[in-house]
């Protein structure tokens, strides 16, 4: 499943009503992604559908560690409300979710801080290259990848992770799988 930036539900795009500016909605899409991840885990979607995998597209990723630190903590305190959630939410995210790298998360001025964030989310393992085409196209694909990544990590983000996640190396064609 791909969870792509955007969509309309009839509800305001924030939990506190309609924003004034488009820029608020753009920034806020990261919080919508957080709400959806929380919902899918709390409702037990991944306990029912153990093979389901989801990609969060164009909503950034650098919010993931702080979000999971809070979600895991709350799960420890409230897990009796959702007994079907058998493991810490962060474990579901690690197993079931991937995120496209968005330029929004790459701060050229703060490479050390970005490295800390990525260290706190299992390194390059969850990141997939996303071009943003035709909206927010990066000039060079390498610019979409954190500057401190080693060559093997760049390879992971640019192809290896997507290859594994989308099973691109399996036999092609409808009916070819399994």
């Amino acid at each position: 499943m791909s969870l792509q930036y955007g969509g309309l539900t009839g509800n305001p795009p924030t939990a506190v009503g309609w924003p004034t500016y488009l820029v608020e909605e753009w920034v806020g899409m990261a919080t919508v992604a957080q709400s959806q991840i929380m919902s899918m885990i709390a409702e037990g979607v991944f306990d029912r559908f153990r093979d389901l995998r989801a990609v969060v597209v164009e909503a950034g990723f650098s919010w993931l560690p702080a979000f999971l630190w809070r979600f895991d903590k709350n799960w420890k305190g409230l897990r009796r409300e959702v007994p079907w959630v058998r493991r810490a939410p962060s474990e579901y995210v690690r197993e079931h979710f991937r995120f496209t790298v968005g330029p929004a998360d790459l701060q050229p001025g703060e490479p050390a801080a970005l490295q800390h964030v990525i260290d706190d989310m299992w390194g390059a393992d969850l990141l997939l290259f996303g071009s943003g085409y035709p909206h927010d196209v990066v000039a060079r694909p390498r610019d979409a990848v954190p500057g401190h990544f080693s060559d093997p990590e760049v390879e992971q983000v640019m192809s290896g992770n997507a290859r594994a996640f989308y099973r691109l190396d399996e036999p092609a064609g409808i009916g070819g799988r399994r």
Binding site: T9, N11, P12, P13, T14, A15, G28, T31, V32, S35, Q36, M38, S39, A42, E43, N74, W75, L78, R79, E81, V82
Partner: peptide, 11 residues
């Protein structure tokens, strides 16, 4: 939530 009503207090 910005994605609609949550089911659980945890959320």
């Amino acid at each position: 939530t910005a994605a609609g009503w949550a089911s659980f207090y945890l959320e």
